[in-house]
Structure formats: C-alpha cells, structure tokens
Amino acid sequence: MAEEAQRLRGSHGGGGGGGDDMGGVGRGGEEREMLIMALMLQTLMLRCCRPQVMLALVTGRQVEAYATKLFLHNQTSDVYLWNKHLSDYIHAGDRYAAVECFIDMNRSNVDCDSVTLVIALSAVTGSNDLLELGQQIHGMAMKLGFNLDVTVANSLINMYSKAGCLSFARKVFASMEELDLVSWNSMITTYAQSDLEEESVTHYLGLLSDGFRPDNYTLASVLRACSSLTSGLSLVEQIHVHALKTGIVMDN
C-alpha cells in the first residue's frame, strides 16, 4: 500500500520529503488515510440502497469525490491544509471538531474554496442545532459564487432536506444552472420521504426529460412514491418496463 501511495503521489507531481505544516502526518500516511476513507465510503454505498439512506449516500459520495480532489490542489497552500484537517475530522466522525476547525479557518482569513464548503456542509448536515451555521455557509457560498457549483448546491439540498426545510431545498434546486443525477435523486427522495408522492414522480419524469439515466436509488425512491398513489400500479408497470429496456437492475 505504501509503494502504491508513493506511486500515486508521484503521478500528481508531488515531491518527496517531510510532512505538512499542520497535521504532523507524513505524506505517505495522508495518502493511505484518504485511500482508506474512499474504500470505506465505497463499501457503505455498495451495502446501502434503501431510500431512507439515499441522502446519507449523497454526502458520502461528495466527501469521497472531494477527498480525491484534494490531491490535485497545491499541497503547500493554506486552503489545502485546512481542507485536509476538515476532512480528517469528518472521517473520524467528529462533526463538532470539524465545525470548530471551519470557524478557526475563517478567523485565520484563509479563503474558502468549493471543497471547503462541501466538507463544512457535510459536518452540519443532519444536526438541527447546526442548521443556522449551515445557512451562514449557504450565504458564504452565494457571496463567493460557489452556490453555482453543482456539488455545493447538492450539499445544500441535502442539508435542508435532512433538516425538514423542504422550501429551502426547492429554492436551491430551482436556482441551479446545472443539474446532475445526484441533484434529481436528492429531490425525488426528499419528496417521497415527505409524503409528496406526486412531486416525486414529477421530478422523476423531469430527470428522464433531461436525458439522465435513473439508477437503483432513483427507482427505489420513485417506486416508494408510486405505492401511495391511486394510479401507482400503472406507474410501477411503466417504470418496470423502462428499467428492463434500459438494463437497470434493481436490488429490491
């Protein structure tokens, strides 16, 4: 693993030598930590496919993707080092330490980037007592122009959805200039879990109209919505036919 980590670092143009200024962990150790985190998140995603864990998976995917993105940054920059520490706290499951680190970062006048915001949002998501801070991060994203970043916007949708602030999630979704499958899945799942079945189905149709291919999470959520509709059986049959035609395999 150490040799592979060193090879990967070399492929990104990294040098040899000492550890970073803030973490006290050698570069090879940092690489291994990130690889282990990515593997753990991948395992979680493979095991979990039910609608009720969909939004948790969204955050897992974002953190994993952005942890990888950290290696592409200038590894001597302040923002890289702060992002690395934020990611370490999230990996350790210590959201409050991550929040404190984020606040210290801002007090140090270090400019945030989209990576910072995604990790910070993952720290406050799922905790109603941190919702106000999440709203402040939303305001910061708007001020810096990162609210147009699709991954930051998806993180905001996830945060508001888990806090039960559906109207805010809707506003973020409606304001997005770019949508991806995660964006659509987040709203489809949120509506299904909020007993807004027709909205869930409408967004499923919107996903198809935008040319996206549903995945298992999409289907699990929309089928849950269909089960409560009067015309649900007909819709389920249509979704089933579409899944067969497109080769989508449903786990359940």
Rank of each mutant, 00 (worst) to 15 (best):
A5M: 10
A5I: 06
A5D: 07
A5E: 09
Q6H: 05
R7I: 04
L8H: 12
S11P: 02
H12W: 14
G13S: 03
G13P: 01
G14M: 11
G15K: 01
G16V: 01
G17Q: 01
G18S: 05
G18W: 13
D21S: 11
M22E: 06
M22A: 07
V25I: 13
G26V: 08
R27S: 14
G28Q: 08
G28T: 11
G29M: 05
E30R: 00
E31T: 14
R32G: 04
E33C: 10
L35K: 03
L35G: 10
I36F: 14
M37E: 09
A38M: 07
C48G: 09
P51K: 15
Q52V: 13
Q52F: 09
Q52S: 15
V53A: 04
M54D: 04
L55T: 13
A56F: 07
Q62D: 07
V63K: 03
V63Y: 09
V63G: 05
V63L: 08
E64A: 04
A67K: 08
L70P: 02
L70A: 01
L70I: 01
L72G: 08
Q75W: 08
S77Y: 03
S77M: 01
D78E: 03
D78I: 00
V79D: 00
V79Y: 00
N83T: 02
K84N: 08
S87Y: 10
Y89V: 10
H91Q: 12
H91D: 15
Y96R: 15
Y96H: 11
A97Y: 15
E100L: 08
E100N: 12
D104C: 11
M105T: 02
M105Y: 11
M105K: 06
R107F: 13
R107T: 12
R107G: 15
S108H: 15
N109C: 03
V110S: 09
D111V: 06
C112R: 01
S114V: 02
V115F: 00
T116N: 09
L117N: 04
L117D: 06
V118Y: 11
V118Q: 12
T125V: 07
T125N: 04
T125L: 00
G126R: 03
G126I: 10
D129F: 06
D129Q: 14
L130H: 15
L130V: 07
G134H: 07
G134W: 02
G134F: 02
Q135A: 10
Q135R: 13
I137Y: 12
G139Y: 00
G139A: 05
G139L: 03
G139I: 08
M140F: 08
M140I: 10
M140L: 13
A141N: 00
A141P: 06
M142C: 11
M142V: 13
K143Y: 13
F146N: 05
N147D: 11
L148M: 06
